[in-house]
Nucleic acid binder design. Structure first.
Lengths: 231, 231
DNA sequence: GATTAATGTTACAGCCTTGTGACAGGAGAA
DNA sequence: TTCTCCTGTCACAAGGCTGTAACATTAATC
């Protein structure tokens, strides 16, 4: 599981601390900013996956910060959850117009906050619903999460499944180990390049009893390639 | 694709305006009603695809409106999403009993609203309407709320029933715990993902004495799948 | 053919996911 | 009220998967 980075923006250090604690406990990576302009820098620097923003802040207010982010092409889709002390009609409407993704009103429980965060993250995901991909005897059905070869069901682990899906969606192209780590393992993890080799090996072993081999090809010095052409 | 018509029922014009704006921007067709009786007329006239209903309204209240609609054969399946000012346990339960499809608590973001609307529409589509579904030895009669396996009556709790019905209506597809929470539990509250596991377990336990197992399959790392294929 | 680098294979300890039973609280019935 | 059924959560157990290291094998260059 890749770690998700959350930027906490609040002018009060104790509250940041509390939030950090709750978030870290649930496996998120946390960064902090004490005011709006600091937040802008951090967003530019490390592009978090989600921003938790206190509504009331000195200097650059929450409103302005959100406006700025929304205007920028790069950050206009950054999921933002606002923390509000209480529901004020005026603020609410403003926030809605700006495109904030969700509100959490204080006081809130850590669990609720986590649930909201997960909901927003899930929603902002483009939903990776593919269809059925076929290459020769190999058939991969993403919706049922099944792979068959010559009508025989294959047993694959999660990573092997993702790897095979990626290759079948990008056949005939060579990918370096690093590219594969980026695109199959999803960023954020620090994994040895050689790990890819091992998973390739596992995939090959799963296919071996059925096919005459040749789907997963090694391109020495460059990486691997999936090819439907037998041989 | 057909444009989808949404009826917005709220007594406050500014809020209707705001909602209209958000909905139109996402490609929906919008109609408005300022109170319950007006809403009844519009439903009769133009049969919208979904109704967005403010819980607090003068005259005909939200409760009464829903009751009336649910009693009428023509409108008893009209998807309804309620807008509530805050989560009141009592109201929520009442609403669930009446057959409201989902809740959105203010304040909410346009994105969240749109997401909920799409979720409800998606859910109401595959006609999980009453009917008899059969998969192998399993037979589920939605109208009489009965499940039999090999002609033996099964005792299921409300949640297990809904879960099984959902799976039987969407067999062979893998659903993540979160998807299941969205589509089987009316997601007004925040529920732990692992809760799904427990209900799966309860369902399996209920089926166990009869079948040779294999209906409810675990897809490690992804979720669960219902499959009629033994194994 | 020898040397060196790259890739194939295997084994394994730890982590993560899932299975499972227990339990407290809530809602409804008696 | 008290009782019963149901539900969501937790804690622990079990087992599968994963990333790495270590060793074997193959390819490339000279």
């Amino acid at each position: 599981m890749n770690t998700i980075k959350i930027l906490v923006v609040d002018d009060e250090a104790p509250i940041r601390m509390m939030l950090r604690q709750a978030l870290v406990r649930h496996g998120f990576e946390v960064e902090e900013a004490g005011d709006g302009s600091e937040a802008l820098n951090m967003v530019a620097d490390s592009m978090p996956d989600l921003m938790l923003l206190d509504w009331m802040m000195p200097n650059l207010s929450g409103i302005e910060l959100v406006q700025k982010l929304r205007r920028d092409e790069v950050t206009k889709d950054l999921p933002i959850i606002m923390l509000t002390a209480k529901v004020e009609e005026g603020d609410r409407v403003k926030g809605l117009d700006l495109g904030v993704d969700d509100y959490v009103t204080k006081p809130f429980s850590p669990r609720e906050l986590i649930a909201r965060i997960n909901a927003v993250l899930r929603r902002s995901n483009p939903a990776e619903a593919d269809g059925i991909i076929e290459h020769g005897l190999l058939k991969l059905d993403a919706s049922s999460h099944r792979v068959t070869i010559d009508s025989q069901l294959l047993e694959l682990g999660p990573t092997e499944f993702k790897l095979l899906r990626f290759f079948m969606n990008n056949s005939e192209k060579v990918f370096s180990r690093n590219q594969l780590l980026d695109r199959v393992w999803s960023r954020g993890s620090f994994i040895e390049e050689r790990t890819v080799d091992v998973h390739i090996r596992r995939l090959r072993k799963a296919l071996e009893p059925f096919s005459v081999d040749g789907y997963l090809q090694t391109v020495r010095g460059s990486g691997y390639r999936f090819s439907a052409n037998t041989k």
